[in-house]
Amino acid sequence: MYSIPHIDLRGKVSAVEWQTRVELAAAYRLLVMHGWDDLIHTHISARIPGTEDLLINAFGLAFEEVTASNLVKIDIEGNVLDEDSPFSINPAGFTIHSAVHHARPEDQCALHIHHPDAIAVGSCKDGLLPYSQYAAFALASMSYHSYEGLAVNPDEIKRLQEDLGTANFMLLRNHGALTMGMTIGDAFMHMYDLIRACEIQVKLQHSLDSVHTVHASVIDGIKAQAAIVHTGETGGQKAWPAMLRRVKRQYPHFDI
């Protein structure tokens, strides 16, 4: 009940798989550090580069218990690939991830959370509004998906994929937020921007003053800027090593 099976996969998997495991475990710890976790629910999934295999958290572990070794390797249908693994996954919870990884094979990472401010903004008729620079980043690549209950209906999966399209940011109305990324760091940075934007919007909703908004022409132009600022060598991949160091200081043993 209180103990977690100990696994140490260091030296037992490829270098690229181990690096993916370390970065994905760090992403789970970052969700805890930012207050974005939801008990044992929601997921971050990441494709192991050069393969079709995915990594995801073991069902039943709190996010601060996720380590590089206890992440579960699965195929895109959610089948556990390591027969000796003592862990399982939540098949229903993986449905959204399976859908978006099918639709976006070029992306490594899908990050889904149930942040209250994201749910609040996504539940509003007009969705995310251009109230901040964070919102401008998100609105440059934004999509929405209406709530239909638990995402287990094959017809809804198709609609989810269609609604996502090529966007990197999605608000799941009445449900939460989803971001995609070419790397784990990119998906995290996208979620950081989206949650900041939603937090600011919620703070402004009861303002008695008129709110300055980001002009539509700026949002149109910021898409290219966002690719430089929050991804690539000068953006997400510059910030991401700092995030890994932050996790290592807070959780010295996450990378076991």
Results as ranks from 00 to 15, higher is better:
Ser85Asn: 08
Leu244Asn: 01
Glu52Cys: 01
Asp193Ser: 10
Lys238Phe: 09
Ser146Thr: 09
Gln161Ser: 10
Gln161His: 02
Gly35Leu: 06
Thr231Lys: 02
Leu208Val: 15
Tyr144Asp: 00
Asp37Ser: 07
Lys158Phe: 08
Glu106Leu: 13
Val16Trp: 09
Val22His: 10
Ser69Gly: 06
Ala140Asn: 12
Glu162Trp: 00
Gly60Arg: 08
Glu17Ser: 10
Val100Arg: 00
Lys125Leu: 11
Ala224Val: 13
Ile96Thr: 10
Gly181Tyr: 04
Leu160Val: 11
Glu77Gln: 12
Phe94Gln: 07
Gln161Met: 13
Met191Gly: 02
Pro154Glu: 04
Ala68Phe: 00
His145Thr: 09
Ser45Cys: 03
Leu24Met: 08
Ala46Val: 08
Ile7Met: 08
Tyr2Asn: 15
Leu139Met: 12
Leu24Gln: 11
Glu233His: 00
Leu71Arg: 00
Gly236Arg: 01
Val152Glu: 13
Ala227Lys: 15
Val152Cys: 05
Ser217Glu: 14
Val100Gly: 05
Leu160His: 04
Lys223Val: 03
Ala226Pro: 01
His97Gln: 05
Val121Tyr: 08
Gln205Ser: 13
Tyr251Ser: 06
Ala26Phe: 10
Ala26Tyr: 05
Arg29Trp: 10
Asp82Phe: 12
Ile256Cys: 04
Val22Glu: 08
Gly235Trp: 03
Val214Ala: 11
Glu23Asn: 14
Arg249Ala: 15
Tyr131Trp: 09
Gly50Pro: 04
Lys158Leu: 12
His6Lys: 12
His112Thr: 02
Val16Asp: 02
Ile40Met: 06
Leu31Gln: 13
His41Ile: 12
Val202Leu: 09
Leu9Lys: 12
Leu204Arg: 06
Glu77Leu: 12
Thr67Pro: 03
His41Asn: 14
Tyr147Ala: 03
Val66His: 05
Pro154Ile: 06
Arg196Cys: 11
Lys223Pro: 00
Asp107Tyr: 15
Ser85Lys: 06
Leu171Glu: 10
Ala151Ser: 13
Ile219Phe: 09
Pro5Arg: 03
Leu24Trp: 01
His175Asp: 07
Ser217Pro: 07
Glu65Phe: 01
Pro49His: 08
His101Lys: 06
Asp38Arg: 01
Lys158Asn: 13
His115Pro: 02
Asp82Gln: 11
Tyr147Met: 07
Phe87Cys: 09
Gly50Asn: 04
Ala27Leu: 14
Glu17Ala: 09
Val100Cys: 08
Ile228Lys: 12
Gly50Phe: 05
Ser207His: 08
Lys203Ala: 15
Tyr192Glu: 15
Leu172Phe: 02
Lys238Trp: 07
Thr67Asp: 02
Phe169Arg: 06
Ala46Trp: 12
Ala177Asp: 11
Pro105Cys: 07
Gln19Val: 08
Arg245Asp: 15
Arg104Ile: 01
Ala138Thr: 07
Glu162Ser: 13
Ser132Asp: 04
Ala27Gly: 11
Thr179Gln: 03
Cys198Trp: 09
Val202Tyr: 10
Ile7Thr: 08
His43Asp: 01
Met189Tyr: 13
Met189Asn: 10
His215Cys: 09
Asn174Val: 00
Leu139Ala: 09
Lys125Glu: 15
